[in-house]
């Protein structure tokens, strides 16, 4: 069953306290070549039927209305993959702009 992936990131111009905390930990662990970290969210939505344009339109709406808050975050991607991510081998089959 296809899975729709929604990626949400904190707005670039805003502070990302989580990312800063992770970056600080990486520096303390000796990863001096890592200069920054930003922490976002990935949502995986599964559907009861096939994913068509109408479904994607619906998910883009959900992404803006609930999954993200446009004051502090941006939806940076809505894409379809073959099934829920279980390993790093799963790759997006189709990528569409939000």
């Amino acid at each position: 069953m296809p899975t729709i992936v929604v990626d949400v990131m904190p707005k670039a111009e805003l502070l990302d306290p989580q990312g800063k905390a992770v970056a600080g930990a990486l520096t303390r662990l000796g990863n001096t070549d890592i200069t920054g970290v930003r922490v976002g969210k990935r949502f995986e939505l599964t559907t009861s039927g096939p994913v068509d344009d109408a479904t994607l339109e619906q998910v883009r709406g959900i992404a803006v209305d609930l999954l993200s808050n446009s004051v502090i975050e941006d939806v940076v991607g809505v894409s379809v993959i073959d099934g829920p991510t279980v390993s790093t081998e799963a790759a997006p089959a189709e990528t569409v702009a939000p």
Binding site: P10, L14, L15, P17, Q18, K20, A21, N69, V71, I72
Partner: peptide, 10 residues
């Protein structure tokens, strides 16, 4: 208006 995010002090 606005939004609330994690404290900058961590």
């Amino acid at each position: 208006p606005g939004g609330l995010i994690r404290n900058d002090v961590g």
